[in-house]
């Protein structure tokens, strides 16, 4: 039996899955342009997804990020938000095409795994904490999309340099457009990450310094690459490679570094 708020998330999963199925129909005809109803479907899925987060927050009287299931749902929500905000370049091509199945699969798996149990730990609460968590997760969502765009850039660039003819690559955006998407998403990531970092300062305990140091290192790395990319000091190729490296490094050390931070290890 699925309770009320999980029902909303299940509806979102079905709708994301439906969007993917509708897009698959166009892929069968060698086109990655989703049918018009796919966008409406995605929008409805996003609404259900938002309702789930809202109801869960009301139930636990806390920002819904107290266990892995809620974190997965929130990261998924930020990716969906980026999908809707970034616009047609992103939506009509492979990046956008992959978003719906990624969300459907990710959320379905998180619903099936036994990770949605009430967390016994006492979480800090208050606006600063919730702002910190929300902004940080939005930043990770942006960085995930930016890394995907970076990966596509590197693939497209490799094929153009080596003169490989790969049919589906013809459907992803041009190098120029991918580089632009990358630059914008990196800038947005920094804004969110900075906000998350600033919001954490009043609530950070002394024992949290490894996590804080880790975050500050990535903040500097990301800022340096973003500034260089906007000032055209490094090539789009290098920018794309850095985007992928930053995201992979961040994700692969995320759980390890959290284990050293008392308020994060309870996740």
């Amino acid at each position: 039996m699925i309770d009320g708020e999980r029902g909303w998330l299940l509806a979102a999963v079905c709708l994301y899955g439906g969007v993917f199925a509708a897009s698959l129909r166009t892929l069968r005809h060698h086109s990655l342009r989703p049918p018009p109803e796919a966008f409406l479907g995605f929008l409805s899925a996003f609404v259900c997804h938002t309702v789930f987060l809202f109801l869960r927050a009301a139930e636990i009287h806390h920002c819904p990020m107290t266990n892995l299931f809620e974190v997965a749902a929130f990261i998924g929500w930020s990716v969906a938000l980026i999908y809707l905000v970034v616009g047609p370049i992103y939506r009509m091509t492979l990046l956008g095409f992959l978003t719906a199945p990624m969300l459907a699969a990710g959320l379905a798996v998180s619903m099936l795994l036994p990770i949605d149990s009430p967390n016994p730990h006492q979480f800090p609460s208050g606006p600063a904490f919730e702002l910190h968590v929300a902004l940080s997760l939005l930043a990770y969502g942006c960085m995930a999309v930016s890394a995907t765009a970076g990966l596509f850039y590197l693939m497209q660039d490799h094929c153009l340099k080596r003169k490989y003819q790969i049919a589906w690559l013809a459907t992803i955006p041009s190098l120029h457009d991918l580089a632009q998407v990358n630059r914008h998403l990196m800038a947005v990531s920094i804004l969110f990450l900075t906000g998350g970092l600033v919001a954490s300062l009043p609530i950070a305990e002394q024992s949290e310094w490894p996590k804080l140091l880790w975050l500050v290192i990535f903040w500097f790395y990301l800022s340096a690459v973003t500034a260089a990319a906007w000032a055209r000091r490094i090539s789009s190729h290098r920018t794309a490679a850095h985007c992928v490296i930053i995201f992979v490094a961040m994700i692969s050390t995320f759980w390890l570094i959290n284990s050293f931070a008392p308020s994060h290890s309870s996740l």
């Binding site: 153009l160 955006p173 041009s174 190098l175 120029h176």
Partner: peptide, 9 residues
């Protein structure tokens, strides 16, 4: 067409 893959517009 190749130019469009590189520069877009």
């Amino acid at each position: 067409e190749l130019a469009e893959h590189i520069f877009g517009n």
